[in-house]
Design a protein around this nucleic acid. Structure first.
Length: 678
DNA sequence: GGGGTGGTAAACAGTA
DNA sequence: ATACTGTTTACCACCC
């Protein structure tokens, strides 16, 4: 603002280019890109402490207007009294001096003037302090610049004199001309930059310029520029800059002049995100000047304008052409509290999105790192199963997506069935639990392993989620999924690693557990084969122990038995059962709405076994085909991962809501009825 | 509190 | 000798 470039700058210009770079930097560099350089770190600090609020900004701006009037008088006095050296004024082209002086004499306010300001405008002590500090800095700066320009002028003068004395030396002439031209160009650039800020001010409503008013003099420098005009321009520039910086002080990426893509409608904020505006700061280069100049080349390049519609969030006003759009933008979306609030909202939105993006990136990186590590695991454990697992892993890696991570249970690849993913999606730490898990939730709560694995196949493959099933259930599933319904120990290992990312680590532990279970449970039968020993499943023995679990919920069994239709009653029973058992992991709060169908499948699967134990022959749910009819100890499943084919209970689920068909019942019905009645 | 179940660790033996 | 396979035991935890 008035503190801008010249205010506290300690610039020691050693060349005109340096000077103008400095100016250009302050005028063209968006607030979002500005780094707290020493030049104006003090300034920014003051800004942050004093002029952060918009109201304060406007207030100071008004004060600046007063100061500007005083400065105009001062400037005139300076011109009259001859601030410059008479020598320079003598032969120097008249146009250069005033311009340069104007350039070098920004709103330097004397303490007396400040007092006048105080008399006219009520300034708070803080504001006054700011102004005084600025004033001092400005005076310093002015002196430096004047000295600098003196030297420049003298140098030019000397060169001109040399030319005159030495006659026409085309080379030197050309050099001087080049210098002057460069200088003029730089000044012209400055004018353009000032014009940018004028336009910016216009857009922000801080400066009112009539359309027909030649407020943006673009005359060549040779035509001269009234110092007061330049001074005014400069003040506008600095004021505009202060506005920008003040507004941007809250957030590094906020540039009120350009990046205000905020949304008045919170629900639309994420959708309105302009891809161009999301470049975070790059748009800030899109200054009004460039708009005014470049939109003639690219008439519709404004990020807030497209397809004849104002893209200001929540606006969508139709603007026939770019000019009308600009008019609309300046009138409807001027710098006011509303727009500022919208920008702040958008700022927060962007912040959130950036945060989210950062998290997702980090997550992706972690996934890739993890998968990469896993892919190298076979080297450490050169086993056939690991080879297979590595192959599977590569596939999984290619399919891996951040959504598959357990942190994002709502994502597509995450387990669709909240029931089955309940224990899996709680936390990451829970998934990586190495210690003993005393209960396998799905086993306990009768979740069908086949359907769970089938539906959450990708999830289990990619996420190190411990499957909520006992080793016995998993082993059995692995064996039943095999074409021959028999697997070697190594093949079981292989299945574990292939199907579950969790079992790609701590191999010694879980393999020991697998062996332990194979030996411990009578349901696993070791069969000597030609190639060696294979393991099979004795479903009878396996089912013997399962009814125990559901026996704890006789009401559910009763409900099931009395139900002829599986849809609603089953779901109701399931919910009731959940309520009774107070299964926290299956609550909607933690996992979203559970898929009742899948829950029903869980119950159905378990009920198949339970009911077989209680009243297997009265399985009313399958009038045409009792579960026993579908029994086949070795059921070949070519597509074990297909939910419809993987296991009966799932089929029950999927079909139960449509028709009580048990064509696919083949899981627990495998065991003979007689043995179920045991 | 006891029994059943499940997970983990470990020892041990046999085998390739 | 080593790794794998298979058995067994022990301990602990959870649930009923």
């Amino acid at each position: 603002m008035f503190q801008c470039a010249f205010s506290s700058s300690v610039l020691q210009p050693h060349s005109t280019s340096c000077l103008f770079k400095h100016l250009f930097y302050h005028s063209a560099t968006p607030a979002s890109q500005k780094q707290p350089e020493p030049i104006y770190s003090k300034k920014t600090e003051i800004q942050r402490q004093t002029v952060r609020a918009h109201s304060v900004k406007l207030f100071i701006f008004s004060a600046l207007q007063v100061a500007r009037q005083l400065l105009l008088q001062q400037q005139q006095q300076q011109q009259v009294s001859g601030l410059k050296s008479p020598k320079r004024n003598d032969k120097q082209p008249a146009l250069q001096v005033p311009v340069s002086v104007a350039m070098m004499t920004p709103q330097v306010i004397t303490p007396q003037q400040m007092q006048q300001i105080l008399q006219q405008q009520v300034l708070s002590p803080q504001q006054l302090q700011v102004l005084l500090q600025q004033q001092q800095a400005l005076m310093l700066q002015q002196q430096q610049l004047q000295e600098f320009y003196k030297k420049q002028q003298e140098q030019l003068q000397l060169q001109l004199l040399q030319q005159q004395h030495a006659g026409k030396q085309p080379k030197e002439q050309q050099q001087v001309a080049t210098q002057q031209l460069a200088f003029q160009q730089q000044l012209l650039q400055m004018q353009q930059l000032q014009q940018q800020h004028l336009l910016s001010l216009q857009r922000q409503g801080l400066l009112t310029i009539q359309p027909g008013q030649p407020a943006l003099p673009l005359q060549p420098l040779a035509q001269g520029m009234i110092p007061t005009e330049l001074q005014q321009l400069w003040k506008e520039v600095t004021s505009a800059h202060s506005a920008e910086e003040t507004a941007g002080s809250n957030h590094s990426s906020l540039d009120l002049t350009t990046t205000c893509v905020s949304s008045s409608a919170p629900s639309k904020t994420s959708l309105i995100m302009n891809p161009h505006a999301s470049t975070n700061g790059q748009l800030s280069v899109h200054t009004p000047k460039r708009e005014s100049l470049s939109h003639e080349e690219h008439p519709h390049s404004h990020p807030l304008y497209g397809h004849g519609v104002c893209k200001w969030p929540g606006c969508e006003a139709v603007c026939e052409d770019f000019q009308s759009f600009l008019k609309h933008l300046n009138s409807e979306h001027a710098l006011d509290d509303r727009s500022t609030a919208q920008c702040r909202v958008q700022m927060q939105v962007v912040q959130q999105l950036e945060l989210q993006l950062a998290k997702d990136k980090e997550r992706l990186q972690a996934m890739m790192t993890h998968l990469h590590v896993k892919s190298t695991e076979p080297k450490a454990a050169p086993q056939p199963l690991n080879l297979v697992s590595s192959v599977t892993l590569s596939k999984s890696a290619s399919e891996a997506s951040p959504q598959s991570l357990p942190h994002t249970p709502t994502t597509p690849t995450a387990p669709i069935t909240p029931v089955t993913q309940g224990p899996s999606v709680i936390t990451t730490t829970s998934m990586h639990t190495v210690g003993p898990i005393r209960r396998r939730y799905s086993d306990k709560y009768n979740v069908p392993i086949s359907s769970d694995i089938a539906q959450n196949q990708e999830f289990y493959k990619n996420a190190e989620v411990r499957p909520p099933f006992t080793y016995a259930s998993l082993i059995r599933q692995a064996i039943l999924e095999s074409p021959e319904k028999q697997l070697t120990l190594n093949e079981i290992y292989n299945w574990f690693t292939r199907m579950f990312a969790y079992f790609r680590r701590n191999a010694a532990t879980w393999k020991n557990a697998v062996r332990h279970n194979l030996s411990l449970h009578k349901c696993f039968v070791r069969v000597e084969n030609v190639k060696g020993a294979v393991w099979t499943v004795d479903e009878v023995e396996f089912q013997k122990r399962r009814p125990q679990k559901i026996s704890g919920n006789p009401s559910l069994i009763k409900n099931m038995q009395s139900s002829h239709a599986y849809c609603t009653p089953l779901n109701a029973a399931l919910q009731a059962s959940m309520a009774e058992n107070s299964i926290p992991l299956y609550t909607t709060a933690s996992m979203g709405n559970p898929t009742l169908g899948n829950l029903a499948s869980a119950i159905r699967e378990e009920l198949n076994g339970a009911m077989e134990h209680t009243n297997s022959n009265e399985s009313d749910s399958s009038p045409g085909r009792s579960p026993m009819q579908a029994v086949h100890p070795v059921h070949v499943k070519e597509e074990p991962l297909d939910p419809e084919e993987a296991e009966g209970p799932l089929s029950l689920v999927t079909t139960a809501n449509h028709s009580p068909d048990f064509d696919h019942d083949r899981d627990y019905e495998d065991e003979p009825v007689n043995e179920d009645m045991e």
